[in-house]
Design a binder for these strands. Structure first.
Lengths: 340, 340
DNA sequence: TTGTAAGCGTTATCAC
DNA sequence: GTGATAACGCTTACAA
């Protein structure tokens, strides 16, 4: 069996509680004893049993991460590895672990979350997506369990701390950029209709169109998955219109990749025949041909802030609800062009 | 505070131990009591505290996953989301949780692993990569802690259960496919030199060349990261040779994407000017132009088998060491062409 | 500054 | 079949 606090206590000729205090570096222990106890810990190769610690202190020091379902291929989007990078950095700074809730369907993930939460395996949850009428979100809220959302909550926006971009403004600015290039027939390829990110980006698009005094043509708006294939389907629909758009707002780089591929098959040139303004500025954006003009949303920072804010909520139950907005930047590359 | 086993016991007028037995569906409890206790559990909304259970039973029911460092962008490779899909399925079937060890540098990840292991937070570990002289692998082996590797161990191959493809054969078959198309000047773009997958695929490539009686030109062999940029750098080097190859073995689809992009910039045609045989058959493979001929290695199955075999090791300490080989398939698309 | 002892919510080993 | 009760390894009043 492994070395316990008692073994250390015995060897150092102190009480177990003293060892515990040394571990937590309590100021009420003399430097001398600390030194001695630490020495013994080292000699015996002691390592705290976190499970026992969790039980006694009622703290897991682990956060749970909720992914969209992995059957849904959208989960292959580089968004998740990038956000994970920020999360990883955050939890390492506060010496927390991360546990995943994932599965091939909604129920599986939901059960995962219930077990993490009720099983006391995590102190808080980061939701990596946000969508309408989400069972998990409702569950956590009902329990008043600490959690944050990356994205904008569907409802109770004022009650749930969330880390988001200002997607309305981002899409509005993107649209305005295209408008300024002289485009009027601008298409919109959104993600899943239930996702808040889709809803917001669409709103920004419409706002810009309306402010420019242009009609919002519903035929120009399509919804697809955040996937290469989504982009393919989306562009197919738009190009089949009697009067196809001259520019496109594509809400995800992966989709843009699909759009580009399909257009190439159709022997259409980007940006000569069609301008594309993409979102997320993932690693693909600068590697396509032409490189994509894309709105960078600083994905790792979304993850990092999620962790930081979750920790704040747990440490202080009276922590005010926050809406943290991560700034976005339009990265101009070569997929947009003046329209004459 | 939450409902405990004692609350249930009191309400059901039985002993806590009886409740515990009902939970584990012990055959020594009458159906009557089971029914009654279960009823009470439902009424009170009881959920077991897994932390307490872990402490008492000395089982975490959680597996740890070790990722390559997230600073290393290679971790953005779709390989990881795909392998996660298989792992997720596996752990859900056996009702286990998953905890991540990740970080921006080797030490961070190593510390993560030590904490998971010594902190008793996990019962076993899945290594999602394999490379030479890996500190973590050595640590786990020294402790005789249950773990499996996805890929081939650098050393002690006969002592570590691992889930792998037959990468030597895969690369050999791929090379032979190109040879049969009439290519003789075949280049090889590998991943990091320390990765076993690189070493094996290179070996297969060389074997095929030698068996065909062709010289292995070291200039034709380059090592890059499993990234789009890796592909770009790789192809740059090869095209700068006085006599560039007519066909390429590219050991990752993401790399192939980079190769394709660079070639397009250089106005070179695939497969007319250069044939490309790629690996992994990730979601990009069929979406590039031309679609990539790629060797499918069934990534989710690697993950699923990793979990299954890890569980077997934990359940039976005498479980024999295994080398599980997941079959590969050459998926022919449009990136390879006869050479005249 | 340190020690004693109760308790965290289970499981497991005895009894009966 | 079921009930006491002692672990599991730690934290944390409360004492001293």
């Amino acid at each position: 069996m492994a070395v316990t606090i008692k073994d250390v206590a015995k060897a150092a000729k102190v009480a177990p509680s003293t060892v515990s205090r040394v571990i937590s570096d309590s100021p009420r222990i003399s430097d001398q004893t600390k030194k001695r106890v630490r020495q013994v810990m080292k000699e015996l190769g002691y390592h705290p049993n976190y499970i026992a610690r969790s039980l006694a202190s009622n703290k897991a020091n682990v956060f749970g991460l909720v992914f969209p379902r992995s059957g849904n291929l959208a989960f292959q989007n580089p968004f998740y590895s990038e956000v994970l990078r920020g999360i990883t950095q955050g939890v390492n700074e506060i010496k927390h672990g991360i546990q995943l809730a994932a599965g091939s369907n909604k129920d599986e993930i939901y059960n995962n979350v219930v077990q993490m939460v009720q099983g006391r395996r995590v102190d808080g949850i980061v939701m990596l997506y946000s969508q309408q009428k989400d069972k998990i979100t409702n569950y956590l809220q009902g329990l008043n369990f600490p959690f944050v959302i990356i994205g904008k909550p569907f409802e109770n926006e004022g009650k749930i701390t969330h880390i988001d971009n200002d997607n309305i403004s981002a899409a509005k600015e993107g649209t305005e950029y295209l408008l300024n290039l002289g485009h009027e027939k601008i298409g919109f390829i959104g993600g899943n209709k239930n996702l808040m990110v889709t809803i917001d980006r669409l709103a920004g698009y419409k706002e810009a169109m309306e402010e420019a005094g242009l009609p919002v043509n519903e035929d120009y708006i399509v919804y697809e998955e955040f996937l290469i294939s989504g982009g393919k389907h989306g562009i197919e629909q738009l190009m089949n219109l009697p009067e196809p758009p001259t520019a496109l707002l594509v809400t995800d780089d992966l989709m843009s990749l699909g759009v580009l591929t399909t257009l190439r098959e159709k022997k259409m040139q980007v940006p000569e025949d069609l301008s594309i303004l993409s979102f997320n500025n993932s690693m693909f954006a600068e590697l396509t041909d032409p490189a994509l003009t894309s709105i960078d949303i600083n994905i790792p920072e979304l993850g990092y802030q999620a962790v930081t804010n979750l920790m704040a909520i747990i440490n202080n139950p009276k922590e005010p609800v926050k809406r943290v907005i991560i700034p976005h930047t339009l990265i101009k590359r070569r997929s947009c062009k003046q329209n004459y």
